[in-house]
Design a protein around this nucleic acid. Structure first.
Lengths: 260, 260
DNA sequence: CCCAATCGTGCATAAACGTGCATTAATCGA
DNA sequence: TCGATTAATGCACGTTTATGCACGATTGGG
C-alpha cells in the first residue's frame, strides 16, 4: 500500500488536518504518512515560514488570523452580546432569507451562526459579511452603496434601492435605543431610513438589545414595537420595560446567562 | 499494441487523468504511454504554463482554484505583498476615484493606504471595505450582490449592474495569472467577467503581481497587457517577462524590497 | 536540576529536473 | 518529386530537490 504522496499533497493534507483538528503532532504525521519526522518537521517549518501555521514544540497549530483591531473594537461587553446572540440564532431557520443589519450585537450573532446552517443572509455591513464568509452553508448577499463609517454599513439611496428588491423572512435590526413609547430608534438619519425600509419589507422583525439601551430613545425613529416584532433581552432587563413591550403585543425572549 | 498518440491526445489524456485521479506522476505516465519521461515533463511544463495544472516535483496536480479563502491567502508571503503595496499606493492620488478589486495583494494595498489620503475608493470586497473603514479621509463605496466565497467578493449580475454606473480614474485589479501572451487571467468565470467590465470602464488599470503568478495563465481571460496598463512587480521578477510586458507597451514598476 | 523528547543543521544519496543536441517524422513550396 | 524547414521526441549531461540519517543543541515536565 503506502500510496506515496507528493510534497504538495502532503502539505495540503497537513493544512486540512490543522483546520479540522486544530493541531497536528509531528510524530503522528510521520507515522501516518510513512515519512521520517525530519521530513514532517521540514514541512511544518516551511509552512510556518509561509504564514500557514504556527510552529510549536511537538507539532503545529493553525495560525490565529489577525482578526485585529477591527473586530476587537466591537468587543464591548462581549459575553453579554454573545449571550444575546445565542438566544437569537434560534430564530434563523433552515432555508430562510434573513437580513442582518449593522451593529455590534448583530456581529456577535453572525459569529455565532452554525457552520452547518443553510440559509440566505443579506447584509449591508462589510464586517458582518466577512464574518459570514467563514460559514460554508450560507448563501450571502451584500447590499452596496456609500459606506457610512459611523454606522459601518452601506445606507443611503443606493442601498435603499437594493433593499427594495428584497422580501426577507426575518429582519434582525441593530438598534441604538428601544423604548415602549418611542419604539426602536437610531442615531443617524440615513441609517434610520434604511432600517425602516428593510423592516417594513420583512415578514418579521427581531432586535437583540442590551439592557443599557432599554428605555432610551435616539433621535430618529425606526419602527414601533408591537405585534410581529420580537425582542431578545438580557437576563437583568427591567421588568417594567419588559411588561410594556409585551402589553404592546411584542414577543420578548430573555437570554440565558452563560453557565459557569 | 502501443497505438501512438499525438501530442494533443496525450495532453488531453493527462488532463482527464488529473481530473479523475487528482494527480499524475511523470514516471507512471511515461511507462503507460510509451514515451520518455522527458516528453511527459515537457507536456506537464507546457500545461502548467498554460494554466491547466500545477507542476510539482514528481508529477502534477490539478489546479486548485480554491487556494483557500481570501483571508487565508492574505497570510501568504505578507512582506512581499506589503512591498508591492508600498510601490502601488503612489498611483492613488488625492481626489481620484479608484476601484480596488478583490485579492490578497489588494488587501495589503488597502491596509497600506495613508489615513490622510482623500479619495473615493470603490470595492466589491467586504474584507477590503472593512480595512478601509479605518482611513477617515476616504469616501467609500461598496458594490453589492451575491458574494462568491472563493473570490471573497461580490461578482455576478447585480455587481455588474452597479459597476456599470462607475467610471473610475484607476482600477487596481487582482489577478490570478499574468502572462505577456495570455494577459491577465482569473480562476473564476464570474470574477473574470466582472474584472473585465470594470477594467474596461476605467481610465487606467494597475495590477500588483507577485512573481509566482508571472508567466502563468488561469482559465479565464480578463484583459491583455498593453499601453494604459501598469504592472507593479517584485524585485526578483524574471527579466524575460518584464521585457515582454514593456515590449507590449505596459508600464512596469519594480517594488523595492524592505530595507533592513 | 535532570532526562527524555524534540529540534535544527550538515551531509549523503537517489530521484527528478532542465538544457542542449541529435534523430526522426511531418509539412510545404517549388 | 525533392529539398528545406519545422515539430516532436529521445538521449546525455550537469544541476536541483526531496528525503533520511547522524549529531549536538534546545526544550520543558517532573
Amino acid at each position: 500500500m503506502s500510496t506515496e504522496l507528493l510534497l504538495r499533497e502532503r502539505k495540503s493534507l497537513i493544512q486540512d488536518r490543522l483546520k479540522t483538528e486544530g493541531r497536528v503532532l509531528a510524530a503522528d504525521l510521520a507515522r501516518e504518512l510513512n515519512v521520517s519526522e525530519d521530513t514532517i518537521r521540514r514541512d511544518l517549518r516551511e509552512m510556518a515560514a509561509a504564514g500557514l501555521c504556527e510552529r510549536v514544540y511537538g507539532g503545529a497549530l493553525p495560525l490565529a488570523p489577525d482578526a485585529g483591531s477591527l473586530s476587537e473594537r466591537a468587543a464591548l461587553a462581549p459575553e453579554r452580546k454573545a449571550a444575546l446572540a445565542r438566544a437569537s440564532i434560534g430564530f434563523i431557520q433552515h432555508g430562510m432569507t434573513v437580513f442582518l443589519d449593522a451593529g455590534s450585537t448583530n456581529l456577535a450573532i453572525a459569529r455565532t451562526i452554525s457552520p452547518d446552517l443553510s440559509a440566505t443572509i443579506v447584509t449591508n455591513t462589510p464586517l458582518i459579511a466577512s464574518a459570514l464568509m467563514e460559514k460554508p452553508g450560507l448563501n450571502l448577499i451584500l447590499i452596496g452603496g456609500t459606506l457610512d463609517r459611523t454606522v459601518g454599513a452601506a445606507v443611503g439611496a443606493r442601498a435603499q434601492r437594493d433593499a427594495e428588491l428584497l422580501r426577507p423572512d426575518l429582519c434582525i435590526l441593530g438598534t441604538c435605543g428601544a423604548d415602549a413609547e418611542a419604539g426602536l430608534t437610531a442615531f443617524h438619519l440615513e441609517d434610520a431610513e434604511f432600517k425602516r425600509l428593510i423592516a417594513a419589507r420583512s415578514r418579521s422583525v427581531l432586535a437583540a438589545v442590551t439592557s443599557d439601551k432599554l428605555g432610551t430613545a435616539a433621535p430618529h425613529a425606526v419602527i414601533g414595537i408591537g405585534s410581529g416584532s420580537t425582542l431578545v433581552l438580557e437576563a437583568g432587563a427591567p421588568e417594567g420595560e419588559v411588561a410594556a413591550f409585551i402589553a404592546q403585543g411584542a414577543s420578548v425572549v430573555i437570554a440565558e446567562e452563560r453557565a459557569g
